[in-house]
Amino acid sequence: MKVNYSSSPQPNLCSNYTWQQAIVWAKETLKKSSEATDSARLDAELLLCYVLSITQASLYAWPDKPVMKPQWQRFEYLVLERCLGRPVAHLLGQQGFWTLDLQIDASTLIPRPETELIVEVVLDLNLPTQARVIDLGTGSGAIALALASEYPHWSVTGVDQSPEAVNLAKINAHRCDLERVNFYRGNWAQGLVKDVNKPLHCVVSNPPYIDAQDPHLSQGDVRFEPLSALVANDHGMADINIIVRQASQLLAEGGWLVIEHGYDQGLKVAKLLACLGFELVATRKDYNDHDRVTYGQWSGRVPAIELGR
């Protein structure tokens, strides 16, 4: 990709440019790139703060401070990488989620604000003081760690089929001082046996739910994320189907399943839960007014249609 450097400070003069001028250059460069973003100003600020090891508040407070040559070289590199489409979270190696600061790499999905809705829904449920919660497809550990941070007495476990994801989740548990959260490798809940003495009170999941032919897969940050964490067969419903059936076998009577899904899958997921014996099924919309999270309470009764399968 060709980038216009006409407005760029020359390396030997960069100490004459201020933090504010660096932001202006980066914003304009990002806007003119082939991967133009609606958040050019924010991206520029986040990248410069990362290079300078300062907060955005400091950036606003001292806009006339100079950018030194090593700082400029690093900042310029990151801006040009962003021009090529690389996610800001990957460039920074971190992403905020809930109240946590998580380490991020290309082995997992980047935690997104809409996924915080799962945490909100679970926290609104009437779960026991010492609830047993499992997060299927935990990725970076975002959901599991967010829940554990709110309820220290909950027993929270995260499962992922990717060894790299499990390792990253463990790093984040240490980073967030939440090492009591257990993470292990597994294919959803396969092999997990229901313990009648210690049943699960809540199953949560943000599984792959995008159809393989969805055009959004060739746009934005998802191009840099693992397809295995994004795409599912059966028009995006295959893994959701597996998780709902497994949850019905593992939950205590009165336990809850909370699952994230695509904006156009709310009715399908709600119908699936109802057909498999879940009650009080409901769907919550995200901040963009899209169906995003569906949940239901396990009745303890397997429908006759399932008994006859």
Rank of each mutant, 00 (worst) to 15 (best):
F278C: 07
V51F: 05
L52I: 01
C83I: 05
H290V: 03
V193S: 14
C275W: 07
A44M: 02
M68L: 15
K194W: 09
S107G: 10
G266S: 14
Y263W: 14
G262K: 07
E164S: 14
A40Y: 03
V51Y: 04
I305D: 09
T55H: 05
A89E: 12
P199K: 05
G139K: 06
P11G: 02
T157R: 05
L227N: 05
Q161S: 08
G85P: 09
I243W: 12
G137W: 08
L59Q: 02
Q73M: 13
H235A: 13
I143H: 05
D289Y: 13
W188L: 11
D160V: 04
K65R: 15
L42A: 02
G255H: 05
N206V: 02
A40R: 04
I240C: 07
F224I: 01
L92Y: 00
E279K: 14
N187W: 11
G300S: 04
E114I: 06
G137K: 01
I104T: 10
L127G: 03
C202R: 05
N197A: 10
T138S: 12
S107L: 08
K27I: 00
G158D: 05
A189K: 01
N241Y: 10
D234M: 07
V193A: 15
L48M: 10
E28R: 07
A173I: 08
N233M: 06
E116R: 13
Q249D: 13
H90K: 03
N197S: 11
A169T: 10
P199A: 03
H261R: 09
P87E: 12
A238C: 01
G141E: 09
V88I: 15
L48S: 02
N288K: 12
L145I: 03
L92V: 00
V119D: 06
W19E: 03
A229L: 09
L127W: 03
V88F: 03
S107M: 10
L136M: 08
P66Y: 06
D124F: 00
N206L: 09
W25A: 00
C14P: 00
V258S: 11
E179G: 11
L168Y: 09
T129R: 10
K65D: 09
A148V: 01
N4H: 08
V204K: 07
R82H: 08
T99S: 15
D64C: 00
I305F: 10
P111E: 14
K194M: 11
Q21H: 04
L178A: 11
Y77V: 04
K27S: 04
D105A: 13
S58R: 09
G254H: 00
R112F: 07
P9G: 06
K27G: 00
A247P: 05
Y184I: 05
H201E: 02
S8R: 12
L217Y: 03
G85F: 06
W25D: 01
Q161E: 02
G236N: 10
H216Q: 12
G85N: 07
T157S: 12
G236V: 09
P207M: 05
D124R: 11
Q56L: 06
C202I: 03
